[in-house]
Write a protein that binds this DNA or RNA. Structure first.
Lengths: 357, 357
DNA sequence: CTGAAAGCGCTAACAC
DNA sequence: GTGTTAGCGCTTTCAG
């Protein structure tokens, strides 16, 4: 067989146009087309116009795979969340999206489902995809892998949770302060037995919120009662069973802080099932101010997290890092805000008196 | 120029391993490595072992961009949602994710934000990325573009909303039936003035739910009162203002169906602000059964949509289509289910009596 | 069963 | 300012 170039090509008719066709039509080289596309100037007006016309005429869209291969990095950012079912991330992702859209990046979304194994698989896929960087709500389990990524020069931003012992770009919120303010507020309303329902203490958000709780209890001159602190999973069921446990105590709390949005739902469910009145019989504060907070009766007092900004900031840090790989790592801490509503009773008590810094 | 093969190698030290290095180490050709990776048999045990060992030793991960370029299609599926902030999609995406994960695809997530222009941009990006297919909660505006995609052989599955006048793969729910059952239920509880708050009637989910409402009203022998039907946007504000309007009516409804989850939140907010009792003064049913429904007081009667299955089914249809491009289009309709809880009063009324098919 | 080699479409030196 | 050209890393004929 001699005819090596026989080209069993499918008739090119239906396929997308490529850069050669554009170049031929505009009577220029492919390099010129490429220059026009990337818009880094240095092409005469005449040629630019011809190329633009050809691009329009052929409905040409540059093939990303080819570009990525050549550049060794894609116009794409990977995001790994720990629980895609949690509406918390919905807003975070929205913030990421808008920043990426602006910069013409696309978002590859992965869900670790709190499973370090899946997290690792996703990271490896994202690397293979050649993503320009990764935004990660870490399961926290695999410090070595993060270290390796960083060493390989992969822009990596952790959000919400901070992986232990690692220098990296970071966006978090004032977890301790938020919890402290909420608990101080409850204390200032006269509550002396205040429950805390939070997640696994290996997760930084969980432990920080616990810290804030303890700080408030102590600074308000109350007693730390271990039985009032329930650790569980960060899901609705976790909040539900933990609240059951608290209510079954010989001396149950008169107020409770649920340390995440889903847990709060579980807490409310448990309370309603026992026909307890909020806030008369039990006051409730939730971490994270979700859309539904104001639709509850009574409306829920909540520690609002700037979820959208969390995502947007992370995306910005990532793009920054990509363009200046060697700048020092940054840790951005966004402020939470206590939204006092009716679920904790009397609105009059001042919030700011407590020392929650 | 004679020296075609000059190969100005840069020192490969820090870069990821590539197929040539694996091949050299295993003392085979790159073709053999490729065959081993793709696992389509036809490689002797000995060589397979050597290749596997080399892959492990070098921590080799095939470069996706190169593979995509060569194959002209990526191991990637695009998803365009109409409102990423809506938790409805959170669950849908989760369903898509799990199926794609299984099939070793990655998910590119885009948000049209109900804006046809953004939708179009995203579609074009996804094409350029060479995605294996697109799952789309359509804004419904750009029939031509969808037609073009289909003609170009791009696997395309519409979810939730059906674009008008178009043959394509489709996954929806029994919108009319769901609404009809809910309204019939309310009617059977004695309500005669039942309000409906829904979205823009160009969107199929909206109009189908309206159909179901009307069907129920008529079949239950009630009168259709136009002022009880409020069209608005599918957001919380839409539900809020529409509910205000209904409550300001000279003769306000005694029950209301909110045709989406966010609208329901707005409706509840408006009701609470006026200190109306649910269900005594106003009964409420919401379309879509969200996590918070059971945490409300009273718990919310809702029309549950199989959101997870919606996503999972769409992903399956997409992968099917990819492997059998010419099979007939399929329209999968998933069943909604009326979850009767306390927000519509008396639980005793039977549901099934109505003719909602 | 295995290897050689031709590109996939694009970008970025480098030459003019 | 513009064109030429060598690959990016992989898959896939085709030859043996």
């Amino acid at each position: 067989m001699i005819a090596r170039h026989k080209r069993a090509r499918r008739t090119k008719t239906s396929k997308n146009a490529n850069i050669h066709q554009v170049a031929r039509r505009a009577r220029v080289s492919t390099a010129t087309v490429s220059r026009v596309i990337d818009d880094h100037g240095g092409v005469s007006q005449d040629l630019t116009n011809r190329v633009r016309a050809a691009i329009r005429a052929l409905d040409y869209h540059p093939n990303r795979a080819a570009r990525n291969l050549r550049r060794l990095v894609a116009q794409t950012v990977g995001v790994i969340v720990s629980d895609i079912q949690n509406p918390f991330f919905t807003s975070v992702i929205s913030g990421i999206q808008n920043v990426l859209d602006e910069a013409r990046y696309t978002l590859l979304l992965c869900n670790s489902d709190e499973d370090p194994k899946r997290e690792r698989i996703h990271v490896s896929t994202l690397r293979a995809e050649g993503v320009a960087g990764i935004i990660l709500a870490s399961t926290g389990a695999d410090t070595d892998m993060y270290r390796q990524l960083l060493k390989a020069g992969m822009p990596l931003v952790a959000i919400d949770r901070v992986p232990a012992h690692l220098q990296m770009d970071l966006v978090t919120v004032t977890n301790a302060k938020g919890a402290c303010q909420a608990v101080s507020h409850l204390a200032s309303l006269g509550h002396e037995r205040i429950g805390l329902i939070t997640g696994p203490c290996e997760i930084s958000t969980s432990s920080e919120r616990l810290d804030g709780y303890e700080q408030a209890i102590l600074s308000m001159g109350l007693r730390l009662a271990p039985e009032l602190i329930q650790l569980s999973n960060f899901r609705q069921t976790g909040g539900y069973t933990s609240m059951q446990t608290l209510l079954d105590l010989p001396s149950p709390p008169t107020a409770v802080l649920a340390a995440n949005n889903l847990m709060t739902l579980g807490v409310l469910q448990a309370i309603h099932e026992r026909n307890l009145q909020i806030p008369e019989q039990i006051a409730v504060v939730g971490f994270d101010d979700m859309a539904w907070a104001t639709s509850l009766q009574p409306p829920l007092t909540a520690i609002a997290q700037p979820t959208y900004e969390l995502g947007a900031t992370a995306a910005k840090l990532l793009l920054d890092r990509r363009h200046k790989p060697d700048q020092p790592y940054r840790h951005v801490v966004l402020e939470t805000q206590l939204m006092v509503r009716a679920s904790c009773g009397g609105k009059n008590a001042s919030v700011s008196q407590a020392s929650c810094e």
